[in-house]
């Protein structure tokens, strides 16, 4: 849940990157971390296994600038994508303001994408959220690989509600900041709408 601190004049929001295992969620955060100026970012924390698979979450605090004298801070989290870490995924969704779903474009991961999307919807319900009412962006990652499904196929499979979608190659950064900007903007717009503004 967004938090406005009037004494330090800050608006804090929580963004969660969700999606199937090895889809590129951590890579998105790593690219953002690498390309952001030191004064705009905090430390990136990765709670990972010895083989660098996300165990609990990755965390990256970012400052995006000021609105009306208030600093806007976004806390970016990823969830562990592997199926058996479902308990951890639920915990990270607590207080979420916006979700990015990082889909793996490879044909053989189509089923994993669908399963993860259903899992996201279900876990949000358990936390008292409705995915259709949350700021939500889909990223089709790994577009540079040879064995990818078309965007139309991916769209049909996991984006029936037509939320904004972006193609990406997170390893080289293509689409990474476009996705981040879109979700941050959607969250701020929703915050204003929710306050009756």
């Amino acid at each position: 849940m967004s938090f406005i601190n009037y004494s330090s004049r800050e608006i804090n929001c929580k963004l969660v990157y969700y999606g199937p295992g090895l889809g590129g969620k951590t890579t998105n955060l790593q690219f953002i971390y690498a390309k952001t100026s030191p004064e705009a970012k905090g430390k990136m924390i990765s709670l990972a296994t010895e083989t660098e698979r996300t165990l609990f979450f990755d965390f990256l605090p970012l400052s995006l600038g000021e609105i009306r004298g208030f600093k806007t801070r976004f806390h970016l989290y990823t969830v562990p994508g592997q199926v058996f870490y479902d308990a951890s995924r639920k915990l990270i969704l607590k207080g979420v303001d916006g979700v990015v779903f990082v889909a793996d474009s490879q044909i053989e991961r189509m089923e994993a994408n669908i399963e993860s999307m259903e899992n996201l919807r279900q876990n949000l319900i358990e936390q008292g959220y409705d995915l259709d009412k949350l700021p939500f962006i889909i990223q089709y990652n790994k577009r540079d690989l040879p064995n990818v499904a078309s965007v139309a196929e991916l769209h049909a499979a996991i984006n029936p509600t037509n939320v904004p979608e972006f193609e990406a190659r997170a390893t080289t950064g293509v689409g990474v900041f476009e996705t981040l900007k879109a979700i941050a903007k959607a969250v701020l717009t929703e915050l204003r709408r929710g306050s009756g503004g």
Binding site: I4, Y6, I11, L64, G65, E66, I67, R68, F70, T72, K181, A184, K185, L188, T189, L191, R192, G194, S195, G196, G197
Partner: peptide, 18 residues
Amino acid sequence: TGPSILNEITDADIDKLF
């Protein structure tokens, strides 16, 4: 009786940030 900063934010403010 919520705080009012959010009500004051305009589309232009959000666009400017990006």
